[in-house]
């Protein structure tokens, strides 16, 4: 068996726009164990989502490789299902149909029709959406849509579940509630999860390890923090836990002292704007 279930090796991402090349991700190396919950945190625009898209296979990296369970990833597929930030449910399908589209395609051969039906219901039940099978996305709340999005992703039985800021668009109470649900489901199923977030509390509460990206361009993995807190975790108890607070502070220190965003951005604007202008003249 391979030492690591999922490994990201020397991934490099460079975008080319109008003659100017921007190096977004630089020398990204990451190994993930089976059943691990990893958060990737960093300031907005640092390339977190690009990294997730590369792992998903939705974006092709410039160089480097992603290897999952011994095989190289080069196209999207149900073994790396994604929960998108804005739920991305198809509005013309009902809750049930949104999940069934994925299930019927993924298990077309391996499960009978009745088994697929059971499986769809089971996954929707797991996220507490059995009551709204025939509702359309427009008829349910934002939190419920995201639950269905999670059910759809889980229903494909992915080897790695990819969460792209899954709770970003939700209000604080709904977000806390869904975080609990995700923890419960992960406890139950033991999924391998990679989650993009910019919420420090969320990262510490949910993760086994937090991967911190430096600011772009050429974002690298700055630090990796092991979160050694017993599960199941309870956010109220953890609020007074010295370890929890230490982890939290470490992430905060990384984000706000080592990788200050606002000043850097202002500085960079002042410096690079004329530079890029001269480049254009030369080109």
């Amino acid at each position: 068996m391979a030492a690591h279930y999922l490994s990201v090796e020397q991934v490099e991402m460079t975008f080319e726009t109008k003659g100017a090349t921007t190096n977004v991700l630089h020398e990204i190396n990451l190994s993930v164990q089976r059943g691990e919950y990893i958060s990737i945190i960093g300031h907005s625009g640092c390339g977190k989502s690009t990294l997730l898209n590369i792992i998903a296979g939705l974006t092709e990296s410039t160089s480097g490789a992603v290897i999952l369970d011994g095989k190289e990833v080069n196209a999207p597929g149900p073994d790396r299902s994604v929960v998108f930030q804005n739920h991305s449910l198809l509005p013309w399908l009902t809750v049930y149909e949104n999940v069934s589209l994925a299930v019927n395609k993924t298990f077309a051969r391996s499960k009978s029709k009745a088994e697929r039906h059971e499986w769809i219901l089971k996954n929707l039940d797991m996220v507490g959406m059995s009551h709204a099978l025939d509702k359309r996305p427009a008829e349910i709340s934002g939190g419920m849509k995201q639950r269905v999005g999670i059910a759809r992703a889980l229903s494909m039985e992915p080897k790695v579940l990819l969460l792209d800021e899954p709770f970003g668009a939700l209000d604080a109470l709904t977000r806390a509630h869904l975080q609990e649900e995700v923890m419960r489901i992960q406890d139950e199923l033991g999924n391998t999860v990679i989650m993009i977030t910019h919420d420090v509390d969320e990262a510490v509460l949910l993760s086994d390890r937090i991967v911190m990206l430096t600011n772009g361009p050429s974002a690298r993995i700055g630090e990796i923090l092991d979160i050694d807190l017993p599960r199941p975790r309870n956010r109220i108890e953890l609020a007074d836990d010295p370890n929890y607070n230490r982890y939290r502070q470490e992430v905060l220190r990384f984000l706000y002292e080592k990788q200050r965003k606002v000043e850097n951005l202002a500085e960079r604007r002042g410096k690079t704007a004329p530079a890029s202008a001269t480049k254009k003249v030369r080109a």
Binding site: G77, F84, K105, T106
Partner: peptide
Amino acid sequence: NVARVIRL
């Protein structure tokens, strides 16, 4: 993207 992940 949804279609690509599901592999329609």
